[in-house]
Amino acid sequence: MAILVNESTRVLVQGITGREGRARAKLMREYGTKVVAGCTPGRGGESVDGTPVYDTVVEALEATDGIDASVIFVPAPLVKDAALESIAAGIPLTVLVGDRVPVWDVMEIARAAERRGVDFLGPNTLGVLSVGKGVLGMIGGRAESARSWFTPGGVGVASRSGGMTSSTGYYLCRAGVGLTTLVHVGGDGIIGLPLPAVVRLFESDAETKCVALFGEIGGSQEERVAEMMESGEVTKPVVAFIGGRAATKGVRFSHAGAIVEGGRGTHAGKVAALREAGATVVDAFDALPAAVAKALEG
């Protein structure tokens, strides 16, 4: 099963003719992802490494037998229009890889997605990878690395930090714990599918037995996961690490999301909320694999 992407997900790459889009489309394909079409305004009719390029998303939809997800690789100022196009076309999942997308643009994207009843991941996300099945975005970098780092199993990984998504997955697999899907929800403050939404997907995925969370200070995502555990909406074991214990209040450490404003989103508050809800929270990141292994047994 896995969540968000699997071997039959049909993928559109918006911005496929750009340097980044071309390179990433190739890596996604090398990992086994079904990239069926590309889209770049004004470049319809071309082809990139064998993938046909269309001028608009609707045109790509009409020319294929369907598109399940679109991954956007365009410069930040152009992300809003590309995302609104994919959402308007009703693509069920749009992945916004771009960094530095203005937050008011993201709020407009979120409004459009809610009205259309579709999802988006990001912005500022490395994407999502289902082990051995497919990848949207750039988790793992080279396909061969992704294959050697991640092995299949029963743990779902959801992370607010891009780099730590792969790291969490790698250290779990090295400890003999395999994975279903790794999701980087994006480093910004306002995002499409936050940790609670991803945990909900893992909850309903038959293959996933346990969820490993990499949380961070700031915002309310971890607290919302705790609320879902309290209410019984989430029943699978959750094992978490929360980064940023030493961060100074009010100081932003490059992650737009990782900021403590007022009393909200503190490290201590998140740890307490998760523990009270029954999650295992490890104090040292290195202790995560053993704790996950234990949760799988229990």
Partner: peptide, 29 residues
């Protein structure tokens, strides 16, 4: 640092070993 999540863990580790940091720096992406 390289990447916000890893950087924060790095600073935490330095703190545990009795260091403080002159600066925060992140080259990533």
């Amino acid at each position: 640092g390289a990447g916000g999540g890893g950087s924060m863990m790095g600073m935490d580790a330095l703190q545990r070993h009795g260091f403080s940091v002159a600066n925060f720096c992140d080259t990533s992406g």
